[in-house]
């Protein structure tokens, strides 16, 4: 359950104030499948960062699973990110010196999971995402699709309630893109809220709901 109310985000660019987000209101219930769309500079990435607690709104409130996360301090927000939010990025953002398995394991390492439990979950995830024979490979030894599957495995290993995907297919060929979207939609069907930022209409149209943004405002689909 996500609830944004009157979110404002203002960036100072030189002397000018740029309203990246204005009067943004949105809600998403658990298991929703949303696409945030709009031209570049429309504020869709900023919205995603605020949803992911990587950026703070200048005003407005953000409620996630009935917790007013916009009021939490840095440490508590980190905790929320760790347990409730999974990120998937356009450029995968895998740690280059770590193997696929180690990349998937990383969130649990940061959380201080028991090593035995870590190994078990990693093995299950590798199997589930078809990466079992790629466990010991480093990112530069993997294809784009494989890298994004590792990233999705990493995003879901903590069993979050939301997955935020920023152009998840933007750096993949068609086949790999479709494969990745199928995986994400599978996860959504299992009950995870899926929010995808994209400017690709084909991808956006697959979502249950579309939020279109222009100049920092949501122009349709709020609710």
């Amino acid at each position: 359950m996500i609830k944004l109310q009157d979110i404002e985000r203002i960036f100072q660019v030189g002397d000018e104030e740029v309203h990246a987000l204005q009067e943004v209101n949105m809600t998403a219930v658990a298991g929703d499948y949303l696409a945030i769309m709009g031209p570049s500079g429309s504020g869709k990435s900023t919205l995603l960062h605020i949803l992911g607690l990587l950026d703070q709104p200048d005003s407005g409130t953000y409620e996630l699973d009935n917790v007013k996360v916009s009021d939490l301090d840095e440490q508590q927000q980190a905790e929320v990110r760790r347990h409730k939010i999974g990120f998937v990025f356009q450029f995968f953002h895998l740690v280059p010196r770590l193997t696929a398995a180690e990349n998937i394991e990383l969130p649990m390492v940061l959380d201080g999971f028991d090593p035995a439990e870590r190994k078990k979950r990693v093995a299950t995830a590798l199997e589930a995402f078809g990466l079992a024979n790629r466990a010991g490979h480093r990112p530069d030894q993997l294809s784009g699709g494989q890298r994004q599957r590792v990233a999705i495995a990493r995003a879901t290993i903590m069993q979050p309630s939301v997955i935020l995907a920023d152009e998840p297919t933007g750096n993949l060929d068609r086949a790999a893109g479709i494969e990745v979207v199928n995986i994400l939609e599978d996860l959504n069907r299992q009950g995870i809220t899926l929010i995808i930022v994209t400017h690709d209409p084909a991808l956006g149209n697959r979502a249950n709901r579309k939020i279109e943004m222009v100049d920092g405002r949501i122009i349709n689909g709020h609710g």
Partner: peptide
């Protein structure tokens, strides 16, 4: 920088 941003996205705290 990217790696540090990623660590933050994965839930690392300032102190970590």
């Amino acid at each position: 920088r990217v790696e540090i941003g990623l660590l933050k996205a994965l839930g690392s705290t300032h102190y970590q």
